[in-house]
Design a protein around this nucleic acid. Structure first.
Length: 230
DNA sequence: GCGACAG
DNA sequence: ATCTTGTCGC
């Protein structure tokens, strides 16, 4: 993880500062495949308890071997959310807890699949890009619904069908159907990976479910951690 | 001003 | 995100 992170990158005092932090972080995103050999893939997700007065965030990260996708490790952490859920500012709510989980995770993944958008975000810094840049670890955004942008064309019904996600004349990601009769996934660059590379990883992590294995297991891990904590 | 809006 | 079992459809 990067040393000496500016406080505003994780806990900005207000939305104006949060916005400025996102713009600074977005400028650091590397949308190219700059990563070494991948032997370990990570899945990242967060679980919340509704009506929780404490506003706790339960982070879950799983480490899977590649190409076997066998479970190598898992880590979780709990933290009080510094801010409520506000579309466009998800990172500030979930990244702190994820960093805590990351510290105890072993082995450390070479590439992370994160539940949420990468650069398919109004300021180019969805949670996957946010986490990737802060850790300086390659990451991919795997969202279940759109935040900004629209499919460039009608998406095919067959698994594997995909179409660019466009916003303001830009291709921010790819809409990918991973399973028949299931809503598509929105894939985008997180950090140190290209869009083509990102889509390739997601497709290769398919295990018959709508979500790729890393993210699917991370979701289960985050939920399990929340239940265990009460 | 109005509507949209990841998890 | 979360509350929740069975049930309908491919």
């Amino acid at each position: 993880m990067r040393p000496d992170l500016p406080p505003d990158w994780l806990n900005p005092p207000d939305l104006a500062a949060a916005r400025a932090a996102q713009q600074a972080l977005a400028a650091m995103v590397v949308a190219e495949d700059r990563h070494g050999e991948v032997r370990c893939l990570g899945g990242v997700d967060v679980s919340n308890t509704r009506f929780d007065p404490e506003n706790r965030v339960h982070a879950g990260i799983v480490a899977l071997g590649w190409p076997g996708l066998e479970r190598l490790g898992e880590a979780s952490a709990v933290q009080r959310a510094a801010m409520p859920y506000i579309p466009g500012f998800l990172g500030f709510r979930e990244v702190p807890a994820l960093l805590e989980a990351w510290k105890t995770l072993d082995p450390k993944p070479d590439l992370l699949l994160v539940d949420g958008h990468g650069i398919a975000h109004p300021r180019g810094l969805g949670i996957a890009a946010h986490l990737g840049v802060v850790l300086d670890v390659p990451s991919i955004g795997v969202a279940k619904s759109p935040l900004v942008g629209r499919p460039a064309a009608e998406l095919g019904e067959a698994p594997g069908a995909m179409v660019p996600l466009e916003w303001r004349g830009r291709v921010l990601g790819m809409v990918l159907r991973t399973r028949a009769r299931a809503n598509p996934l929105y894939i985008s660059v997180g950090h140190r990976v290209s869009l083509e590379g990102a889509v390739g990883w997601v497709r290769r992590c398919a295990a018959g479910y709508r979500l790729p294995e890393p993210t699917r297991l991370a979701h289960l891990a985050a939920n399990a951690a929340r239940r265990a904590a009460g």
